[in-house]
């Protein structure tokens, strides 16, 4: 028992130290930090006008038929909000490996006795916190400038995000393993992040997708995360009953963590076998 709590404590310490390190480095580029925080506004604004252009008397009628809400902009905004958490896995976890390789600091991290999963978690948790700040800011500005009316309970929405975020962290672990092996992954990360967000229904209800693509969408746990959060916040019609969506999210959180961890360590072992660790 004492051993377990000591182990847990040292893992939390690694996670905390890594998050702190990432945060300090983030603040050492102040211009970039500010821009990153306001960036979502830049690409959300045109969508507001697009939603307006497709609406009659403030109601996007066709859209309402698919989703149960006529407020396209709020729909997209929540989608963007959720997508920034997907980016945590792709950029916060997977890309940080490439970043470290480029800097030359991966090897000194890798020769410490610290648990590698904890190191990766620390990075992504810093990004997840930043993302939350960013998203809340976007929601606030949306409410002030664009008339976004959040009717539901934000607290419940955040509770739903937790299993989705855990599932995404599992995905991030697996991706980090892949980056360890292929090393130059920036473009691949960028593309797969985008595809993942889009197919999960960032900007449209997945029910508009043609059958094969919809099948892919329904296989992604994030789809249910987006759907459930929208349903809570905006009162959209959920794809499945809420309870089922939450069960799916929790189950996939567990499965993806186990699989992601296994994939990461498999690639880590492969790199040691091939001797490709470090360098780029």
């Amino acid at each position: 028992m004492a051993k377990l709590s000591r182990w847990l404590y040292s893992q939390l310490r690694v996670i905390g130290a890594t998050a702190r390190k990432e945060f300090i480095i983030f603040t050492r580029y102040p211009a970039n930090a500010v821009l990153e925080l306001i960036e979502p506004l830049m690409w959300l604004t045109p969508l507001y006008f697009m939603g307006k252009a497709f609406s009659a008397g403030g109601h996007a009628v066709g859209f309402e038929g698919f989703t149960g809400t006529s407020d396209y902009f709020s729909f997209v905004m929540v989608g963007a909000f959720m997508s920034s958490y997907i980016a945590v896995a792709f950029w916060g976890m997977a890309y940080s490996i490439e970043g470290d390789m480029i800097l030359g600091v991966l090897e000194p991290n890798w020769v410490t006795p610290a648990n590698r999963v904890s190191m990766l978690l620390g990075r992504s948790i810093m990004f997840a916190l930043l993302t939350t700040v960013q998203s809340l800011g976007v929601l606030l500005i949306g409410a002030l400038l664009f008339n976004v009316k959040v009717s539901g309970d934000i607290f419940i929405a955040l509770l739903i995000i937790v299993p989705m975020l855990i599932a995404i962290l599992g995905l991030g672990l697996g991706l980090a393993g892949i980056v360890l092996a292929i090393r130059r992954a920036q473009t691949a990360i960028d593309m797969s992040n985008w595809v993942f967000s889009q197919i999960s229904g960032m900007q449209f209800p997945v029910t508009v997708l043609p059958k094969p693509l919809m099948a892919v969408a329904l296989a992604l746990p994030t789809t249910y995360g987006y759907d459930a959060v929208r349903s809570v916040l905006l009162g959209t019609n959920p794809l499945l009953p809420m309870k089922q969506e939450i069960i799916i999210l929790v189950t996939s959180a567990i499965v993806m963590c186990i699989v992601g961890r296994a994939v990461f360590y498999a690639f880590d072992r492969r790199c040691r076998r091939l001797g490709t660790l470090g360098g780029h």
Partner: peptide
């Protein structure tokens, strides 16, 4: 982008 001390603080947790 970290100071000398911050580098050591970070790695102290890892070690």
């Amino acid at each position: 982008k970290l100071t000398g001390r911050e580098n050591l603080e970070y790695f102290a947790a890892l070690y």
